[in-house]
Computed example of a mutant assay.
Amino acid sequence: MNNNYDKIANHYDTLSRLVFFKSQVNAQVNQLQYIPKDSSVLIAGGGTGWILEEITKIYPSGLKIVYVEISAKMIALSQKREFKNNQVKFVNLGIEDFSTDTVFDVVLTPFLFR
C-alpha cells in the first residue's frame, strides 16, 4: 500500500483543515448522532483519532470500535485520544488487508484516501 501517512502524522489534522477547512470535520461530526447505542463500529482510515473523541462526546460508553489505520504513527496518536469506556481495538493495516468475522452496525471512513 502506497498511502502511509507516517511522515505527516503529527501535522495531518492541520494540513487537512488547510485544504478542507472545517467542512470535512463538520460533515463527519454531523453523522455521529446516527450511530446506534451499544453498537459495533468499524473505523476505516481513522487518521489521528480525533473522531474517537467526538464519538465519545455522544457515547461515553457501550461502543465496540475496531479502528483500522495503515499508519503506525497515526495509530500511536489515536491511542492517546480519550475514548472513555468504549472498547477500541486498534489494527495497524490497510483496510484492503483487514479481515474479520465481526458484523458491524456502522462503518465510518473519516480519512480513507487512496
Rank of each mutant, 00 (worst) to 15 (best):
V66Q: 01
W50V: 05
E53I: 01
W50C: 02
V68M: 07
S16I: 15
N2T: 13
W50Q: 04
I51H: 08
L77F: 08
G47V: 02
K84M: 09
K73I: 09
S16P: 10
Q31D: 11
K64V: 11
I70M: 12
N2F: 07
N86D: 04
I43S: 00
I58L: 13
E82T: 15
D6M: 04
K80T: 13
L32R: 02
W50I: 10
Q33R: 12
G47Q: 07
Y59F: 15
E69Y: 09
S61K: 15
I51P: 09
I70A: 15
W50S: 06
Y67K: 09
I58C: 00
G49E: 03
I51Q: 06
Q87R: 13
K37H: 12
I8S: 06
S40D: 08
Y59C: 01
K37R: 12
T48H: 04
Q24E: 15
Q33D: 07
V19L: 10
G49A: 07
I51T: 09
I35R: 05
Q87N: 13
A27W: 12
R81Y: 04
V25R: 11
F21R: 15
I35C: 08
N3V: 14
N3S: 13
Y5R: 11
G45R: 03
T48A: 02
L15T: 13
S40G: 01
Q87D: 09
S78M: 12
K22G: 08
G47E: 10
N85E: 14
Y5T: 09
K73D: 15
N4C: 13
N10R: 10
S23E: 13
S78P: 03
Y12Q: 07
V41R: 00
Q79K: 14
Q31P: 09
K57S: 02
K57H: 03
I65F: 00
L77Y: 00
I35G: 03
P60I: 00
D13S: 08
L63S: 11
Q28F: 11
A72F: 07
N86C: 10
A44W: 00
Q28P: 03
L32D: 00
A9M: 10
F20S: 13
R81P: 07
N30Q: 10
K84D: 12
Q31W: 08
G49T: 04
D13K: 04
G62V: 03
D6F: 05
Y59V: 01
Y5E: 09
I8F: 03
L18H: 11
P36V: 02
K84P: 02
Q31F: 11
I65H: 02
A76W: 03
S71C: 04
S39T: 00
Q33V: 14
I8Q: 09
F83W: 09
N30E: 09
Q28G: 12
H11M: 11
H11A: 04
E54C: 05
P36Y: 07
F21W: 14
Y67E: 04
T56G: 06
M74G: 05
Q33F: 06
A9E: 03
Q79P: 04
R17F: 01
F83Y: 15
I75P: 04
E54S: 05
I51C: 06
N30S: 00
L77V: 08
I75Y: 05
